[in-house]
Amino acid sequence: MMAASSYVSMVNAHYDEFGNPTEEQMALVSIKNHGNAMNNPKAQSPMEITVQDVLNSRIICYPFKMLDCCLYSEASAALILASEEKVKELGVDNPIWITGVGAANTDCFIGNRESMGRLYSNINAAKVAYKMAGLDYDNIKNQIDLAELHDAFSGQEVISYEELGFVPFGEGGPWIENTYEKPGMGPWIDGELPCCPSGGLIGCGHAVGATGIMSTGEAALQLRGDAGKHQVEINHGRAISHSIGGPGAAYAAVIVMENEEGLSKK
């Protein structure tokens, strides 16, 4: 079973339960992330595309088309981690603090899951990370400035909106559709909660194993104001990164990061 057919099983099960994400809603994720990558010089797949371009691209496994899928890539990413004491000793300017970490597993085999349309590992990892950072799962959308998600496939990003607490279950597809071309709303780069402003895995390429580090590094750049042309507005001083791995996408990790301003606001 390929990664695409593994993820598509979850997306199709979600569709059976909630009637979304539709092919058009998934195409909007593709437009957003390929589009965001236009402003990221390190991205592999910057593209200005339309819904029709996505729908017309080669089918991979129903209903995923080629432009719904990230590209498998070869790349590296790195973070420099240090203890609070070391940061102070070295006098690091503008450090980004990791204030919440959550990791969780679910059944590796999708056939064992009672509810195939959602990843409980995402939900549990998010809840643990938010709690550690003193944040509220039910109000997280209003407490962070951006999220770098694991958008290996467009439909998976839509489901992640729900699992990570941005919108209630079943409302992920409508969230991106109803906010398209409405500044200040939705997961768009100028939206209420920009998701994958870097372009994510769809826009940047998926260097398996390095992407979680990439997403976390991207969120740190944003909080520092160093994201260049894809910089989003930082008001809370807080961001999350999210990564999935393992057979059946069973393993999930969520990291909450804050800059000095974010810490001082709590």
Partner: peptide, 22 residues
Amino acid sequence: VSTIVWYTTSDFIQKIPYGIAF
């Protein structure tokens, strides 16, 4: 749950499209 596969590994590529399901 099911999907129809149009792209796959070399072992199965001759058989596309085919359905897979849980």
